[in-house]
Design a protein around this nucleic acid. Structure first.
Lengths: 151, 151
DNA sequence: TATTGTTATACTCTATAACTATA
DNA sequence: TATAGTTATAGAGTATAACAATA
């Protein structure tokens, strides 16, 4: 029974986390998908749409749309790929870069606020517990997927 | 620094949880929104669309669409409201009921699997930690929202 | 022949606005 | 006049398929 209470609490947390993310992005006029594109470019540097699609696990077609929108908002730009004339390189504009840096700061501040009042030891214990549950869930998903494949 | 690691681990878990839910629903030919409708009807009994919309925090118009789709799949049915000829009552079909019961079982089994190997004490400590973080996050969201309202 | 990106099309989630039938 | 639901329309996320230019 306690397992189920734990799971419900977990689901409640994911719902609230998602709500918070939507609120934050909405305030900036962004969406989760568009932000994900910017995040990838911010971390990997100028990227081919093909690679962005692979990392997001989304069709290249969809990346075309997302980049179109980000370009319209002056958050990213397209440049020709120097070695492959089929491809383009997506990079952040100055404005896009500043937004990503602001988000990283907000992210860190939120992380601190969430665990304010807990000792580092407690935080670490929580983190390990969550890591363990995450790993187990991933294993279960993997198993389910291979069973599907077999069936 | 540990706060941020904790937060990243939390985000990783929510991503995996969401992926698992999508996989499960997709296998049944359902979507999150349609399932939510069924879940509400399963718990509250025959319901007016108006009430379903309020509980999902979604427009009545959208509920019309979702119920249309569920009716097409023989998962719910519409019946006239006995006291109010404007309204309809949405209820689960036998098939819909059996699906909801199966999902409740899967839910419980997953909850057990996730904490297998942990002692009840450990599970409880984790649950409390997560509850605390959830509460704090909700408070932060509340504060941000009222500041927005003031600005 | 394989790959990068785009045009064309479609489905789902969601919203607002206008309308019908009833209260 | 207010409420329950639907028709009409629209925008965002996402997918598949067909096609262009290039490799």
């Amino acid at each position: 029974m306690s397992a189920e209470q734990f799971f419900d609490q977990l689901l409640a947390l994911t719902a609230v986390l998602q709500e918070d993310q939507e609120r934050e992005l909405g305030a900036l006029g962004l969406t989760a998908a568009r932000t994900h594109v910017m995040w990838i470019v911010h971390h990997s540097g100028p990227s081919m749409q093909r690679d962005i699609a692979a990392e997001m696990d989304v069709t290249p077609r969809h990346v075309t749309t997302l980049v179109d929108e980000l370009v319209a908002d002056d958050l990213v730009r397209r440049a020709p790929h120097p070695d492959d004339r089929r491809a383009v390189l997506v990079s952040l504009t100055e404005y896009g870069t500043s937004l990503m840096e602001k988000m990283a700061l907000d992210h860190a501040a939120l992380a601190d606020a969430l665990v304010a009042g807990l000792s580092p030891t407690e935080v670490d214990a929580l983190r390990r517990g969550i890591a363990q549950v995450t790993e187990r869930l991933q294993a279960l998903i993997e198993r389910a997927r291979s069973e599907e494949g077999a069936a």
